[in-house]
Design a protein around this nucleic acid. Structure first.
Lengths: 224, 224
DNA sequence: GTCTATAAGTTGATAGAC
DNA sequence: GTCTATCAACTTATAGAC
């Protein structure tokens, strides 16, 4: 009843915020889609499965996003934002040790809290980034290279060991994301699920591993 | 003509090594399948595509492997062997620095020479290891834990910094495989293809990064 | 052993009633 | 805006001629 009235009102003069329903529906669909795409990949997820997960009929998904590919792109766009976020900790006048520690923990938190996002992103990269290649070669490339120059500055100033900055990023991303992307392998080897305790241990490992590799942990601290 | 004669001979009394044709055909199919599965994933690869890549009709693939899933399992089995190979460098009486260096370069060589194998493996892990989960929780788990105890021994003997051995493996695998699995991201950031020169640079980075993190590089060597 | 032809089912997408 | 019913295309797998 309420829905009917609203529809009538909107077609005449929308007194409720326009697109409110659309926004809510799209969020529902995107949230469900992230889960399904993470588990099955783009090709392995069917529109029926995506619709079932969202609790809506298939055609409603087509109504909002047009094609399966467009829905996938929308999921990826959401994720890319998260991705390029924490890197801002790396600033010329920041303390290298503190900046790297913050960035690592940002990445580890993301991995722990949004593992499905990580997996959707990994799947896209694994298959050659057909949907987001342009963004990677554009925005992302320039952002990362700008941050690499900051690290180069730290090295020239003798504030950390000489580590190739771009490869430092590659290693950092790989070490953190592996706990989401390859969780199956890690739980198999550990023999336990990746709960909060295991993820905390993983975070400590990555932090001290990277800091030591960058010459940012004193001898005395090595035994921690 | 030769093929016809061979067929007649075999049906009577096979004087040629039996299964020779089978072996050759299976190799052809497996090699092509690794490439196709790497690019498209399991769900994204169709039998027609796999057949086209192998230069054979679809039904021949079914004749040799039965189902698409069985073919995929066969590809994975080939890869798992490669995977568990180089870890034998880690022996109690080996020099930690030399052993780790050898293992890293083994992994990097594999990544450079068989990127498609790495990608098929990554795709399987990414989707929860439905086909090889048993092997991971069995053979692989016990092998890796055995090697972790070797590293624990090195640490107790003060021969390297105290690094969690299992997490050391996770980091090592992630840092090396990222150059195959997420090549799209890496080439986007580098702005160049991953040729032999770039892979050599990557190998040097991973080696010094890990050795420094394990306290196996002297101060004087840091500037290399 | 090899391949053409086809069966049986699933897919992404849409038309059209409500 | 929503959903049922349906389409054409494509999927894996197999039967059966050669």
């Amino acid at each position: 009843m309420a829905a009917r009235r609203r529809a009538v009102v909107r077609s005449a003069a929308p007194d409720v915020k326009p697109g409110r329903i659309r926004q809510a529906q799209e969020s529902t669909i995107l949230e469900a889609a992230e889960k399904v795409f993470a588990r099955a990949g783009f090709a392995g997820a069917s529109m029926s499965e995506l619709a079932l997960a969202a609790g809506l009929p298939k055609s409603t998904l087509h109504y909002y996003f047009g094609t399966k590919e467009a829905l996938h792109r929308a999921v990826l766009a959401n994720i890319l934002e998260l991705w390029l976020e924490g890197i801002e900790a790396i600033q010329p006048d920041a303390e290298p040790r503190e900046a790297l520690t913050r960035y690592i923990h940002h990445k580890m938190r993301l991995t722990a809290e949004r593992p499905d996002a990580s997996r959707v992103f990994a799947n896209e990269l694994l298959h050659g980034a057909p949907q987001i290649g342009d963004i990677l070669r554009g925005e992302m490339r320039s952002l990362v290279r700008r941050k690499a120059r900051v690290i180069e500055g730290w090295i020239r100033a003798g504030r950390m060991a000489p580590v190739d900055p771009l490869h430092l990023f590659f290693s950092l991303w790989a070490m953190t994301q592996t706990y989401a992307d390859f969780e199956a392998q890690i739980t198999a080897v550990l023999g336990t699920q990746l709960g909060p305790r295991a993820m905390h241990r993983a975070g400590s490992h990555v932090e001290s591993f990277v800091l030591r590799a960058c010459g940012l942990l004193e001898q005395a601290e090595r035994g921690q």
